[in-house]
């Protein structure tokens, strides 16, 4: 159980980085095949079809921003954490996001997208669609919620293990820097899109 919730007590450095890179590559492939964008530090989205290079760029962007946030925390907290451990644990902590992408495959994606693309939002037909797939929406929603909680747990464990700090200042920095990284990811994506 400890290995599930505190994996970085046992795995870090090069091993974690190799696992993390495999997770990033798989996320890019799944994203390319299913049009799911892993483009947020804290979330993922449905998107239009994009070349695999865009999905790989999403991975680089998110891992880069998270690493930047942790390195900034390392400097502020005067920690002696190794960059290798930071990158390795962060990339491995993205495993629940990959799992969330797989779970989203359960949704009737094509029909859902067609519904979302309609010019006129027809509540009646939307309700009928939701009612028809209610069980799937509930299961996927619950699974996504649990995976997001697990993702935050792994990110916190990565932060805690690498920086060896759990005091109020460290917690505030963790929350603040994650939010800043998420906002920055949106700004960068908007700039890239334009």
């Amino acid at each position: 159980m400890n290995k599930l919730f505190k994996p970085f007590e046992y795995i870090a450095g090069t091993r974690a980085l190799l696992i993390g890179l495999a997770i990033a590559a798989l996320s890019a492939i799944i994203g390319h095949l299913t049009n799911i964008r892993f483009d947020g530090v804290l979330d993922l989205h449905f998107g239009n079809p994009k070349p695999i290079s865009v999905h790989l760029l999403d991975q680089v962007l998110v891992l880069g921003l998270l690493t930047g946030a942790f390195v900034l925390a390392k400097v502020i907290l005067k920690s002696n954490a190794r960059l290798l451990d930071i990158v390795g644990t962060i990339s491995m902590a993205r495993l629940p996001m990959l799992a969330a992408g797989v779970v989203m495959l359960l949704l009737p994606n094509e029909e859902l997208r067609a519904l979302m693309d309609k010019d006129q939002f027809d509540l009646q037909s939307n309700m009928a669609f939701i009612e028809e797939h209610l069980a799937v929406f509930i299961i996927v929603g619950l699974a996504l919620l649990l995976l997001m909680v697990y993702y935050f747990q792994l990110l916190w464990q990565a932060y805690k293990t690498c920086l060896n700090r759990t005091d109020g200042k460290a917690v505030a920095l963790f929350i603040g820097l994650l939010l800043a990284a998420e906002i920055l990811s949106k700004i960068i994506l908007m700039l890239l899109a334009s």
């Binding site: 970085f8 007590e9 046992y10 870090a12 974690a16 954490a81 190794r82 451990d85 293990t161 060896n164």
Partner: peptide, 13 residues
């Protein structure tokens, strides 16, 4: 100890 490098370093700290 079968632990990761940072967790051992934290223990030493």
């Amino acid at each position: 100890l079968g632990r990761s490098y940072p967790s051992v370093r934290n223990r030493l700290d």
